[in-house]
Design a protein around this nucleic acid. Structure first.
Lengths: 233, 233
DNA sequence: TGCCATCGTGACCGCTGGTCATGATGTGAC
DNA sequence: GTCACATCATGACCAGCGGTCACGATGGCA
């Protein structure tokens, strides 16, 4: 029986060989992660990962159908870890503040895991997803849905509390989602160009998080359209 | 004399051979672009580009030091074309509306050139830039500066017109820049997941552009911090 | 102990980006 | 016209990649 990708890592109902297999898969993933971190995931060959893990190259392919599946597994693990973190964060005084806190925390989490963020963006591309096994693809979709639910939960509370207009939720989601991807890309790029940019990544994150909240609140108030119309050039 | 990358394409001061060389370079770029569009830039080999252009593989490397330099050249050309479009757009009634128009136009331009957007993101990564020749790197920096200047021009006008607080310019820049990258990433990804997303890309762009303006105006007013504080959960 | 199923393995494959010795070609002097 | 030279296009060639698979080691069961 082949167990791809640490599903059912609990030892119950597993034969000894299965446990050895699962352990080796974990070793493989951590080894790959270390090498990817040290040398960049595109520069690290499967053979090198195998060697570093003290395992034959062919064995790697008993665990993962392709090198890209290793990427996918690392991304899924990271993404799940993040989601769990967000879920366990305490609610603030109101849902928009909670959202602000989660967003700000997400930026820090992603910034501390640049390689995973790069892989995330890489794995989201349809060219990548199309090449992927159905099983992996399903897990990505599931996570997408979980994140969407998390957002909708908070947005729903905000609507219920009169902080957000129901009609603005979709626009706000677009904005938040876009800012997320923007920050991910900034992190993946690895900082700012020579000619501009804030002092530190932290202040950049603060700016974007605040900007986002301004957008969320402003969107529901339609303030900018009225505001701008009143001003002269 | 070797002329990399269509600098000085004007025929003056060029020998016949130089013109042939420059023409072939252009042919090479358009051929590469077509193949990249049709099959994805990662799946197209240099040999295939050469064959499609009716040129020996070795000759490709007389024009571009690496395959990545072809990417860079396509990106630079696209990015310059976009910048020129933005610069030639007429000023609206006030600078923030002009900015809105430019942003919205940029989204459409990028959406119509997905492959170039993907390459843009690929080329911005430091791993890529580090491998690149100094000459190419310098051109990227120059373009970055030009885009920054474009933003600063409009932001400066907005500040002068009282539409924006001087102290908010950096935060607004962070927000706009982040949204740009977010939209680029969304385009590069190629749409939305199964479980959410607006009806069309156009309405998504509208949402993000409007959300951005709300953020720009809201940031200068510090409205959200006061607004949220007043609301109960 | 001996048999058999299972699984780890590295030689092997097709292909990639990149190099370079070689031969073709255009050019200027006479 | 022609010859000698410099220049440049070329594809055979290379190391390395992701991925495969026949085979031999291994471990469990009768």
């Amino acid at each position: 029986m082949v167990l791809f990708a640490n599903e059912r890592m609990d030892a119950t109902g597993m034969g000894y060989q299965d446990q050895v297999f699962a352990q080796r898969e974990q070793l493989l993933l951590t080894t790959a992660r270390e090498l990817f971190l040290a040398h960049g995931w595109e520069q690290v060959s499967v053979a090198r990962v195998a060697e570093a893990a003290g395992i034959g190259k062919g064995t790697v392919y008993r665990h993962f159908p392709t090198k890209e599946a290793i990427y996918a597994q690392l991304v899924l693990a990271f993404s799940r870890r993040c989601l769990e973190t967000y879920r366990q964060m305490p609610a603030e005084a109101n849902p928009l503040l909670t959202m602000h806190r989660i967003i700000r925390r997400a930026f820090d989490l992603m910034n501390a895991n640049r390689m995973e963020v790069q892989l995330c963006l890489h794995c989201e591309r349809p060219e990548f997803q199309d090449r992927l096994d159905d099983a992996y693809r399903a897990r990505f979709r599931e996570l997408d849905q979980d994140y969407f639910d998390l957002f909708n939960g908070l947005a729903g509370e905000a609507v219920a509390g009169g902080l957000l207009k129901l009609g603005s939720v979709e626009e706000v989601h677009s904005g938040v989602e876009t800012a997320f991807h923007g920050v991910m890309t900034r992190i993946a790029i690895g900082g700012f160009g020579a000619c501009y940019g804030p002092e530190t990544m932290e202040s950049y994150f603060d700016h974007v998080a605040d900007f986002l909240m301004a957008g969320i609140v402003g969107t529901s108030q339609d303030a900018w359209k009225r505001g701008i119309a009143l001003c002269r050039t």
